[in-house]
C-alpha cells in the first residue's frame, strides 16, 4: 500500500503520520507538497494535523483551496481511503467532504492531553481491528475541535452510523453529541480530531492508534486480493 501524506505550510504532524506508516505499518509512504496536483499511484491519502496557513480566517479554510485539493477530492470519489486528523479533519469539513464545522473549544483553552475514545462503529475500513464500544487512549491537541452541525445533519449521522468515534467520559471541547470522528456516506473518508499517529508505538504511551492504520492496510490487501482473483 502506497500512502501520501499531504504537507501544507504549517502542517506539524506530517512526520508523525509518515513514521506511523513507515515504521508502524512497514509500508511505503511519501510526503506530497500542497502545490502538487496529482495523487495518481497512491492507495491511501493522509491529511495531517497542524496549523495550515496559520489557521488564518478559519482552520482549514485556506488549505481547502490548495493545488492538491482537487486531487484529494478525486481520490475520495474514487473510493480511496482518505484520513484527516485534527487540522486534516478541519480541512475535510471546509472542503465539504464531510458535513459540519468546527468552533472554538467550549472553554477556549487549547487542550493537549490523552483522552478516552469510544469506538462507535467498528465496521468501517478504518476500524475493523477495534471492538465495538471499545475504549481506546488517543491524544488530542487542538483549540478548535468543538464539532458543530445542525439537527438534520446530526440525525443523518446517527441514523447511518457515521459517528465513528466519540469522547468517552468527559467531553473535552463541547462537541455536539460528543463527536470525535465522523465518516462520509461511502465509508472511505474519515475525519477525526484525536491523533492516532501519535499513539502508534507503546514507547509513546499508547499504541491504540496503530490498529487504525492496520485496519486500512488489511482492507486494502483484501480489496486488491479480490481484484486479482476475480
Amino acid at each position: 500500500m502506497k500512502t501520501a501524506v499531504i504537507v501544507f505550510p504549517g502542517s506539524n504532524c506530517d512526520q508523525d503520520m509518515y513514521y506511523a506508516i513507515k515504521d508502524g505499518l512497514g509500508e511505503e509512504v511519501d510526503y506530497v507538497w500542497h502545490a502538487e496536483t496529482s495523487l495518481d499511484g497512491y492507495d491511501a491519502i493522509m491529511i495531517p494535523g497542524g496549523f495550515s496557513y496559520g489557521d488564518y480566517l478559519r482552520s482549514g479554510a485556506i488549505a481547502r483551496f490548495a493545488g492538491i485539493m482537487p486531487a484529494v477530492i478525486k481520490a475520495a470519489e474514487q473510493g480511496k481511503p482518505v484520513l484527516g486528523v485534527c487540522n486534516g479533519f478541519q480541512i475535510l469539513l471546509e472542503a465539504g467532504l464531510l458535513p459540519g464545522a468546527m468552533l472554538k473549544n467550549k472553554h477556549l483553552k487549547f487542550i493537549c492531553e490523552t483522552v478516552n475514545l469510544k469506538v462507535e462503529n467498528n465496521e468501517t475500513q478504518f476500524t475493523t481491528l477495534y471492538d465495538k464500544d471499545e475504549v481506546i487512549r488517543i491524544p488530542i491537541a487542538h483549540g478548535e475541535g468543538n464539532y458543530f452541525c445542525d439537527d438534520a445533519t446530526l440525525k443523518e449521522l446517527e441514523e447511518n452510523n457515521r459517528i465513528v468515534f466519540t469522547y468517552s467520559g468527559e467531553n473535552p471541547n463541547g462537541s455536539r453529541a460528543d463527536i470525535a470522528g465522523i465518516i462520509n456516506p461511502a465509508g472511505n473518508v474519515l475525519g477525526m480530531m484525536p491523533h492516532p499517529e501519535r499513539a502508534a508505538d507503546a514507547l509513546l504511551g499508547s499504541d491504540d492508534g496503530l490498529r487504525l492504520f492496520q485496519s486500512i492496510l488489511n482492507h486494502w490487501r483484501e480489496s486488491t486480493h479480490a481484484a486479482y482473483t476475480s
Binding site: 479554510a61 483551496f65 464545522a101 458543530f148
Partner: peptide, 8 residues
Amino acid sequence: KLLANTVI
C-alpha cells in the same frame, strides 16, 4: 466560497 463558513 472562502470568507464565511455558512454552516456556522
